[in-house]
Each structure stands twice: as structure tokens, then as C-alpha cells.
Amino acid sequence: MAPASNKRIKTLSISRPIIYGNTAEPFGEKRPPNCPDEHTHNWTVFVRGPNGEDLSYFIKKVVFKLHDTYNNPTRSIESPPFQVTETGWGEFEIGIKIYFVNEANEKNISLYHHLRLHPYGFPPDAVLTDKDRNVRSVQYDEIVFNEPTEQLFEIMTQKPGNRLPELKKQSEFSREVEYEEIARLENGIKQVNGEIDILKEQIQDFQNLKSEKA
């Protein structure tokens, strides 16, 4: 392997979107073999691109730290897809460590995901369909390389990796959602600005009062 160059490109950052999370479904009629009696769900925890892209060009490996009650709780996945499928009965926090390719010359980053098996938001006596029981808990985030090494820059600019589908119905992570978020935040900013103006007026009033008294 070529020695990693330490030369970095100043004032430049490059980012890649990732999604991480888990899917879970109850066993149903057929139970997988060799599974402890108390287990109730199949679940899969994963790290991948928003559209299922292969991220192995900059991610060397992903280490999932499972609950200590599992056999061999530290699962190191060195090739895509970066995911672990297991059976279980309870929810717990999974530690995820992402290691980058040598060219990046970066330390790993760690994040946490709360494994979710049970659906929520339904009234307790609601009859759930199979579809409702299939839980999906996914987070969107972006990995940002500040001042990447030249080599990493070369790798990352081979092809555009930051594409999101335009419409909501195409994916739960789309440009449309982004616009909605931005609109929501802008609305909030507008509200806050209004209140700031009111407070500023109050301060002005107080100061006028003060100068009158002085």
C-alpha cells in the first residue's frame, strides 16, 4: 500500500451523506434455526449511502459494538455491505465506529444508534398489521472531511457521491425534504426576528426613559 500523503488541501471540505440505523421484523411463523427461545425479532443494523450506494471507496471498515450478551459482541465488517443481522428480544444502544481508508489519514469516528424493535406512536389497543410491525429507524447524516488529503480528494472526486433524489416519493431522504426543512427553519427565523424587534423597541423605550430622567 502506498504511504499516505499528509498533504492537505486548505480551506476545503468535502462531505458525503450516509444513513445508519436498523430494520426489524418479528419472526412470524417460521423461526430461524439455532436461535434462543426468548428471541422474538430479526433485526439488521447498517451503515450505507442514502440510496444504497457503496461507500467502500472511502470507508475501510465499520465496527458494530453489540450488547455484551451476544456472542462475539464486537462485529467488524470490512467489506460492503456494512451491516449486521441478528436476532434478539430487546432494544439497546449499538456503538458504530467508522474507519476510513488509509489515504484519508483520519481517525475513526464513532456514533451511536438505538436499536429499535417495537413500533411506537400507536394507541396501545390498536391492531397492528404486519407492515406496522416491521420497524425501520434510520438517521441521515453527512461525513465531513475538513481539509482532506490530496489522495482522498482524488478518490472522492472520481464520481459525484452526494446525489439525492429530488422527490419525496422516491426516498425518505430527498431534496424535497431538505427544502421543507429549510422552509421550516426559515419560518422559525422569521418568528424570532419579529420577537427580537419587539425587544429592541423595549430597550429603546427604557433608554429613552432613562435619558429623560437623567
Partner: peptide, 25 residues
């Protein structure tokens, strides 16, 4: 647009080198 697709951004101010998740920044 192309820049965005590559996730490239040229900063005017100095930034600290390293990798991080957007949410932690």
C-alpha cells in the same frame, strides 16, 4: 450544482482539519 453533488465546499475562513459527522458540528 456540481460542487454540491461532490459535497465540496470552499471555506473562506480557516477550518480545523479532520473528519466529523455533520450533526456533531
Amino acid at each position: 450544482k456540481e460542487e454540491e453533488e461532490f459535497g465540496l465546499k470552499i471555506h473562506t475562513e480557516k477550518i480545523s482539519p479532520g473528519v466529523a459527522l455533520r450533526s456533531t458540528k
